[in-house]
């Protein structure tokens, strides 16, 4: 029961922060709030037993993505043009989408139900057999690296490609500095 209460409290805080991001016009503040949002999500993942995910979310969401956003703002500008926060058309669209999604959840099993369909296939096999087939006690590692090795190879290539993409768009800084120097001459 306490777990569920912590869960709801963290989700409530996340809701407050998301609304704060919506209202704040200063982009630095919005970036900071997003970082806090990620940190709260990481706390939520710990409550939900996803320790590996919490680890990653805390380092990536609260650490790296804020630095990238702040770097972008330093290269561009930090203030958003004043605009009305409430626009009727998009608001109705979002309300409709949310209503459809909530209608979709009505068929779903309750939170934390051990008999939910998601737990009846594949996962039990990983939990029961991975010790004998792969070895490591951390099931997440054995699924990530062994059972779903292709998947992870693909993800690694995506990260590599994204790195190359940023190089292509921004250069290494050093080269861009030279271009600026030439223009000044």
């Amino acid at each position: 029961m306490i777990e569920a209460l912590i869960d709801e409290a963290i989700l409530g805080l996340m809701l407050v922060i998301a609304i704060g991001v919506l209202y704040w016009r200063n982009l630095f503040a919005a970036a900071m709030l997003t970082s806090i949002y990620s940190l709260l999500a990481a706390a939520l993942f710990v409550v939900m037993d996803a320790v590996d995910v919490a680890f990653t979310e805390a380092a990536v969401g609260a650490g790296i993505s804020i630095i990238l956003t702040l770097g972008t703002l330093a290269l561009t500008c930090g203030e958003q043009k004043p605009r009305p926060v409430f626009v009727l058309g998009p608001f109705l669209l979002v309300l409709l989408t949310g209503a459809v999604l909530i209608y979709g959840t009505l068929d779903m099993p309750d939170y934390g139900d051990a008999l939910a369909p998601i737990h009846s296939h594949v996962a039990p096999r990983y939990l029961e057999e991975s010790r004998g087939e792969v070895g490591p006690p951390n099931v997440v590692t054995s699924v990530l690296a062994s059972y779903r090795g292709y998947d992870t190879l693909g993800e690694t290539v995506v990260i590599f490609t994204a790195g190359i993409g940023v190089f292509a768009l921004l250069g290494h800084g050093r080269r861009r500095g030279k271009v600026v120097a030439k223009e000044e001459v």
Partner: peptide
Amino acid sequence: NPLPHVLILTAIVVGVATTAVGLS
């Protein structure tokens, strides 16, 4: 269930990489 953990673990890191492309 460990399966969603595996999927989301990789998705987080890929997510920040694609965000970086968007920001650049």
